[in-house]
Design a protein around this nucleic acid. Sequence first.
RNA 1: GGAGAGGUGGCAGAGUGGUCGAAUGCGGCGGUCUUGAAAACCGUUGAUCCUAGCGGAUCCGGGGGUUCGAAUCCCUCCCUCUCCGCCA
Length: 426
Amino acid sequence: MLDVQLLRKDLDNVAQRLQTRGFEFEVDRYSDLDEKRKVLQVETQELRNERNTGSKAIGQAKARGENVDTLLEKVNELGAVLKSKEQELSVVQERLQDLVTTVPNVPHHSVPIGKDETENTEIRKWGDKPSFDFAVTDHVDLGQRLGGMDFDAATHITGARFVVLQGELARLHRALTQFMLDLHTAEHGYEETYVPYLVNPDSLFGTGQLPKFADDQFVTRDEGWFLIPTAEVPVTNLVRDQIVEAEDLPIKRVAHTPCFRREAGSYGKDTRGMIRQHQFEKVELVQIVHPEHSYEALEELTGHAETVLQRLRLHYRVVSLCTGDLGFSSAKTYDLEVWVPSQNQYREISSCSNFEGFQARRMRARFRQSGSKSNEPVHTLNGSGLAVGRTLVAVMENYQQQDGSIVVPEVLVPYMRNKTVLGIEQ
RNA sequence: GGAGAGGUGGCAGAGUGGUCGAAUGCGGCGGUCUUGAAAACCGUUGAUCCUAGCGGAUCCGGGGGUUCGAAUCCCUCCCUCUCCGCCA
């Protein structure tokens, strides 16, 4: 949710910046509603004040044993007017709420202007593309040959966009998860956290998936709970409706969870393999920080995600999403894109965002600062560190050998019972 | 799933129709005393919104109702706890 103070102060500028991400803010409709709201709110407050004093007077008069008929009559009349004003006000407030909660975040000044992903800016590259002196195989064929990746079985059990992993590949998948968790807890200062994978609508609203993106979520029939599309939702909502002490910031959490996405709008996209699934594992980094430090934190957090790829010695690049490609809640996002040899292109493997106070205002997540009377919204950030399924794909393809075996990245060897190659009997 | 109890400020806990945003205790903060600390004592201490300000409004789990007036009465939903059942 945008800062209402900012909307009042700088409406045109906000609308202009929203336009750069392709969003038309209904400026006139908003000002109109807000003007009405202001008038009605003042009116109802004054009426209530009158009624309250009147009611109080009745109580006092009764206590003295006086006749209260005329007083009663007067207050009664007030009540009717008040009721109708209150109804008007609540209609206006509801409309305002509907309008404001569907407006995306304002892009940060440093975000490149552009209409879609073709205009994202490459910030830096790490490592080199691997060269192969044989024709590369994609992870689907590699996995099938190793006998560890079975899409048909998953289709049989559930449907399209699922996979069954088994044997060495299943272990490699777990090794990646373990390695990431160890790295972020031991070296980057994150606290390991396990959270519910089903959340209520308030939590999804808090991080911005509701009300606009209900169709992207899986939902339980009887309870109306949602399967989490990312750990961002339950982990960030740890501070919903909380006032944290300034000295407790930053809060840094890492969580390993499955993620569930309906992928409703992506029919025909990435239908082959593990790139786009209804269910995948992710290690997620979340930071709750003081507003003054959120952009430093974004660089730091992005670096933490990059470290995973560097330790795995996987070639990647960092891209700054342009205004038109930003997610709904984000003010600035870096995507990490890993090299996928079979596709001869970079594919997103992590997305690191600063939401500034956008989610915090939706969640009423504030911090208390000594010397300051009012409590301010915190800033929230998150990033994948990393998407495990896609990392598995990257490792398989980048570490493949001509005979279809896969070299285990050095940092994963201890997690693989010291096995150094998968697919060849040792 | 069945039976019962309950949801009040950071925490504990009083409050069953009127001056209650709410006693009291603990905790927190400031002070007195002390070389310092503890103890004791004194003071202070919820959130949100409107307003340039004075000030005002709202909030006792959520929503609705009764009433001139609701923390208090009624309806409904949610949640927590205890016992029983089931269960990794």
